[in-house]
Design a protein around this nucleic acid. Structure first.
Length: 217
DNA sequence: GTCTCCCAATTCAA
DNA sequence: CTTGAATTGGGAGA
């Protein structure tokens, strides 16, 4: 069996390149507020750039990219085994070993959104080859009525949001560092979301997905 | 145990 | 050029 290894994917100390040295964001220059992408009986789907100050977002990004144990998964694909195209990690928020950056983010998000987030899942997109297919969050792993809060750190990546059939209306939204995307629990019934691969030169991105999960303990 | 659904990369068609 | 469908197989959950 032909097995492609992950070894050729570099994971070097973060180099501040042209993308990181970025021009001011439109949100910063013009005070763009929350952008509603979809409405439902709950929060719908709302994108809010500049939710976290840039310096704090940068600090969290660096602390997480180097400070936690990222997991690499593999799965069969036809006659070979391939890497899941991203790195992952997750915590219950009451874990004594919760990284400080995640504790800070949770402490900020819980009162700001008014939802009792108790878990966080992280995805590390190393470059444009990393991705996640269109999907919706597993409803059995969420408590109804509470949204998913997706905090973006590092490089900007483009998210695709697609309504489920028959509408299949597609929206694309660039998730800037420090931005927050809130997706209602209800929207997981009606929409899929994903991050497509891109041939554009993009740097590393980390997403933090805060959820209210049914406690298994 | 059995069934259904998901999702990984590539190829092909529109 | 972009987008979506189809494809196999192992794992997870009901």
């Amino acid at each position: 069996m032909n097995v492609r290894r992950a070894g050729n994917r570099s994971f070097e100390p973060y180099a501040v390149g042209p993308a990181a040295a970025s021009a001011p964001r439109v949100a910063d220059m013009f005070g763009v507020g929350p952008q509603r992408l979809f409405s439902d009986a709950e929060e719908g789907i709302v994108y809010q750039p500049g939710f976290i100050p840039a310096d704090i977002a940068a600090r969290w990004f660096e602390a997480l990219r180097t400070g936690i144990r990222w997991e690499s998964q593999r799965r069969p694909m036809y006659d070979r085994v391939v890497d899941v195209p991203r790195l992952t990690a997750s915590w219950w928020l009451d874990d004594p070993a919760l990284p400080e950056a995640l504790a800070e983010a949770a402490a900020l998000l819980r009162p700001a959104l008014g939802h009792p987030f108790n878990a966080v899942g992280l995805n590390f997109y190393r470059d444009g080859r990393d991705s996640v297919a269109l999907h919706n969050d597993k409803l059995h792993s969420l408590v109804p009525g509470h949204p998913i809060a997706l905090l973006s750190l590092g490089s900007q990546r483009r998210m695709t949001i697609r309504a489920k059939p028959p509408a299949r209306h597609v929206q694309r939204i660039d998730l800037a560092p420090g931005s927050l995307l809130v997706m209602s629990h209800a929207s997981q019934h009606t929409h899929e979301h994903g991050v497509a691969k891109t041939t554009e030169a993009v740097g590393e991105r980390i997403s933090l997905a805060f959820r209210v999960r049914p406690s298994t303990r």
